[in-house]
């Protein structure tokens, strides 16, 4: 079984639209949407949810107002600025509380509170789903907005997709990865057999490509690069392909700038599902070329 991950470094380069097209071109894959902070693949694939599970991760501190003596020890030990202090009440007590968006979940306040006034409940951070789509099974998730530890949810989605691929004897797991180079991307990449970086010939795309290829190299994952909207700046596109080669990655094709890209999204379809076009041919060529280096039969 092979896990193939599609990432972008910089967001908004067309990664999810391409993943949807690949799913249409290779319907025997298991699909995994690992962009759990802002999952969009389901908008094209319109999954029917067959199974849903809660995702819990870590703990968060909650100060019990009745038990708080206002001593301030929690604020002293918290390094994340998560403790808010109220004005003194009629008894002169300054009630302390935890700002959930700032709490790191370290528990230091919990066991340093002399009044044992702080609870530490497990956090419900989201849900994950196992669904059917017109292009095969999809594992996807929804993170509670503002939650932390999307990296663990990414790992969980990948694990479920791998298990499903094993059960159903499917050769490929196609992973729509998150943007950036931080925790969720690392979780989406580690141990995968191939990564495709979808980028664009812009100064920001070039800068981020360099970082994301460093990351792929750090985890020793064979990288391919595709230039979307290449004709916005052909010289830059050529320069980036050259830089990609120098970084050990393989360019696998160019996709033209075309409003049909957005038009397909508005119809809830992958580009290759809309009427035949040069844009669709560009995308097919990228898939075929990527298959050639990952050893998948297109």
């Amino acid at each position: 079984m092979k896990e193939l991950v599609i990432i972008s470094g910089k967001g908004g380069t067309g990664k999810t639209s391409l993943t949807a097209s690949f799913a249409a071109l290779y319907p025997s894959a298991v699909l995994a949407d690992c962009d759990v902070d802002a999952a969009d693949l389901h908008l094209i694939l319109q999954p029917k949810i067959r199974r849903r599970e809660k995702f819990r991760s870590g703990h968060a501190a909650v100060i019990c107002a009745e038990a708080c003596t206002g001593c301030g020890r929690c604020a002293e030990v918290c390094r994340f600025g998560a403790i808010a202090v109220a004005e003194p009440d009629e008894t002169g007590r300054r009630l302390h509380s935890v700002a959930p968006t700032a709490c790191e979940g370290c528990g230091v306040c919990v066991w340093n509170c002399p009044a044992q006034a702080i609870d530490f409940p497990e956090q419900e951070c989201g849900e994950w789903f196992l669904s059917g789509t017109r292009h095969g099974p999809l594992v996807h998730a929804r993170l509670v907005p503002g939650s932390e530890n999307s990296g663990k949810l990414v790992s969980l989605v990948r694990e479920q997709a791998r298990q499903l691929a094993q059960q159903e004897d499917r050769e490929v797991v196609l992973v729509d990865g998150p943007p950036g180079v931080g925790c969720p991307v690392i979780a989406a990449l580690t141990g995968a057999q191939g990564v495709l970086v979808v980028t664009e010939p812009t100064v920001a795309g070039e800068h981020d490509l360099h970082r994301v290829l460093q990351l792929a190299d750090h985890f020793r994952i064979p990288a391919a690069v595709c230039l979307n909207k290449w004709d916005l700046h052909p010289e830059q596109a050529a320069r980036m392909e050259k830089a990609a080669r120098a970084a050990g990655a393989t360019p696998v094709g160019r996709i033209r700038y075309d409003d049909a890209f957005t038009a397909a999204q508005r119809q809830g379809r992958a580009v290759v599902e809309t009427e035949a076009s040069a844009l669709g041919d560009d995308i097919r060529a990228v898939w075929t070329n990527w298959c050639a280096i990952t050893g998948v039969t297109p």
């Binding site: 908004g12 968006t101 939650s147």
Partner: peptide
């Protein structure tokens, strides 16, 4: 940062 997870919230706070 883009997204709706902890780095974006850490900034907006």
């Amino acid at each position: 940062p883009p997204g709706a997870a902890c780095p974006a919230v850490a900034t907006a706070r």
